[in-house]
Write a protein that binds this DNA or RNA. Structure first.
Length: 586
RNA sequence: GCGCCCGUAGCUCAGUUGGAUAGAGCACCAGCCUUCUAAGCUGGCGGUCGCAGGUUCGACUCCUGCCGGGCGCGCCA
């Protein structure tokens, strides 16, 4: 409908240009908006105000000309000039009634569009280090990313959902070493667990599995392990150098093959857990992409070679640097350390090069806000190798700050002090969690009061929306008890009977659904859909409260039933995109 | 110190690429179940849109400066 009016105005402007009444090449794009107030009609256009200045005409006079040049449309009953020069459009009821028909025909596909024109877009999200279970902070990225991917899919993009597994870095070595140490404790070895090791309970569990399946196979004497080792923090040393030394000791004592076995067990157990957690949360991926596999394929070396070729790489202090300052970064970045190891950054350049080489027109990364300083250097690298950094969109999701008992909770995977996503899902349910996470703009800091989530989960607006869906099902159950039949064809013939204010309001809301999907996808703002669904549910509940659907007049009854079936359909469609169930009864 | 994000009702947040009278939920107050599920509906209370300038027909929205909060500034990942 919006596009229909935009087209009308565009052709009116073209007509005016043709007759010379309006200079051509003004370059203004026509935008039509929904009005806030009913007295301003259904849609409004501000084109006259926008053009007035360049054309040197009074806005109201210009608006008059445009209105006269508008092609006729059966969907519009009245067009008028208002205020400083807005053009307000009043739609005929029949224009809206057809929406009900449209929804009943398209059902699950109602609202889909071809805005994306089949362009390939990759959405990478969560990608938490496999060093522990997902916590509630990751949950936000999961819900946000999954919903955004769903939205893009429905508006015509070819979407590829991906999880990047950081299985090649130091954090994973710390995990593997932590697992090994817990295993050694079970073997009977006595020593102080490193300050910087992973202390979560799950590390014990993995260590226990290792012990159960392998007995003393990987056992080494504690004295040998800690002999001449750099001291840990409590002994006056540095916890970082201590853990690094411990990792090296583990590798040398176990040997490459056995160290890898311990490492892989930890990785597998945790990754399986993450996969299952996300799957239960309704978050699915097309691909799980391993950093280690990427590096072993030589991609990082190729990336560095390409950067060298571009002439933005130099050596200093024995390390290899990328001159990212050439592209606006605040300082240059190391690619290869003095010890010959490539940095995470080098791997990430390779990964992003790979993403673009895979033929994605657009790449969306969803990161935690603490990584924001990382964005300029990645874009700099893409620019240096001749790719267009505009193809990469990095969306930063702010942390969910947890409160319990009015106290702010710390979230640290290392210390093992965190609330897991699984615990949250158990407490409030998947539906409430998915909906709640997506209710805020991603840049908005989110306060998550656990006590509130647990004790008052019924206040979550998701139940309000689900209730509307369930109520409609209930109407049909009641209909059968009363011995009525729903004849959709009859209802369709009598849509004109839907003239009550609440009916028109509801129909107009339904008509907006396709616009909402496009806007939410385009702006990467899933919350627009969540808010829309709440408003739609409100329109329905109000309608429900003021009018009876199961009336004796078959024409009116069938028309009303058509309307609420359409409402139920749109609610179900929207909830599905949010990953929330649409129950038939509550 | 520099950079990014945020600041809207008592609380949590929307505000449709600058539009008409700034909204919702929660909380609080008053009503509505012999009629399709009261997880609902109706009405009320509640605001210097952090502060001060600027841009223009028009600013919660854009620009500048300040104040306050979060995060980041490694040869960690």
């Amino acid at each position: 409908m919006k596009h229909h009016i935009e087209n009308l105005i565009t052709s009116a402007l073209a007509g005016l240009e043709a007759t010379g009444a309006l200079p051509s090449g003004h370059g203004a794009t026509v935008t039509v908006d929904h009005t806030k107030s009913k007295e301003h009609g259904d849609f409004a256009c501000n084109i006259a105000l926008v053009l007035a200045k360049q054309v040197r005409a009074k806005p109201r006079e210009l608006a008059e000309k445009i209105i006269k040049a508008l092609p006729a449309s059966g969907k519009i009953t009245k067009v008028e000039i208002a205020g400083p020069g807005f053009i307000n459009f009043f739609l005929s009821p029949s224009a809206y009634h057809s929406v009900v028909r449209d929804i009943l025909e398209k059902r699950g596909t109602f609202g889909h569009s071809r805005m994306g024109a089949g362009r390939k877009v990759q959405v990478e999200f969560v990608s938490a280090n496999p060093t522990g279970p997902l916590h509630v902070g990751h949950g936000r990225g999961a819900a946000y990313g999954a919903t955004l991917a769903n939205l893009l899919d429905k508006v015509g993009y070819q979407v590829h959902r991906e999880y990047y597994i950081n299985d090649a870095g130091r954090q994973m070595d710390i995990l593997a070493t932590s697992v090994w140490l817990r295993y050694l404790e079970l073997c009977g070895e006595k020593f102080d667990f490193p300050v910087n090791g992973y202390k979560g309970d799950y590390v014990y569990d993995i260590g226990a599995t290792l012990h159960r399946e392998n007995g003393d196979k990987y056992r080494q004497a504690a004295g040998k392990i800690f002999e001449d080792l750099l001291p840990d923090e409590p002994q006056g040393g540095d916890k970082e150098t201590h853990i690094d030394a411990l990792i090296e000791r583990a590798k040398s004592l176990l040997g490459t093959a056995n160290y890898r076995k311990v490492f892989d067990l930890g990785l597998k157990v945790i990754l399986d857990d993450i996969r299952q957690d996300l799957e239960e949360f309704g978050v699915n991926y097309d691909q799980w992409y391993s950093e280690r596999a990427l590096v072993e394929s030589g991609a990082a070396d190729r990336a560095i070679a390409r950067l060298k070729k571009s002439g933005h790489v130099y050596e200093k202090d024995g390390a290899l640097w990328f001159r990212s300052t050439d592209y606006g970064d605040e300082k240059d970045r190391v690619l290869v350390r003095e010890n010959g190891q490539k940095t995470y950054f080098a791997h990430d350049i390779a990964y992003h090069m790979d993403k673009l080489e895979r033929g994605n027109d657009q790449v969306i990364d969803i990161w935690g806000a603490d990584h924001h300083g990382y964005v300029p250097r990645i874009k700099a690298a893409l620019a240096a190798i001749g790719d267009n950094p505009e193809r990469l969109h990095v969306l930063l999701v702010q942390f969910a700050i947890l409160y319990q008992g009015g106290e702010r909770m710390q979230m640290s995977t290392r210390s093992g002090e965190f609330v897991t996503l699984r615990e949250l899902r158990d407490e409030v349910g998947n539906d409430a969690a998915r909906f709640f996470y997506v209710l805020r703009r991603c840049e908005q800091h989110m306060d998550f009061d656990l006590d509130l989530a647990k004790s008052q989960s019924n206040d979550n607006p998701v139940f309000y929306v689900q209730y509307a869906h369930a109520r409609i099902h209930s109407v049909f159950r009641q209909m059968q008890e009363k011995g009525f039949q729903h004849d959709p064809a009859n209802g369709d013939r009598h849509l004109v009977r839907l003239t009550e204010t609440h009916e028109i309001t509801l129909i107009q809301r339904l008509a907006r659904y396709p616009d909402i999907l496009e806007a939410a996808a385009r702006d990467h703002e899933p919350h627009q859909l969540a808010y829309y669904l709440r408003e739609l549910a409100y329109d329905f509940h109000t309608y429900y409260g003021t009018h009876t659907f199961l009336v004796d007049d078959p024409a009116l009854r069938d028309a009303r039933l058509n309307l609420i079936v359409a409402t139920r359909q749109v609610i179900a469609n929207g909830l599905q995109l949010l990953g929330v169930s649409a129950p038939e009864s509550m």
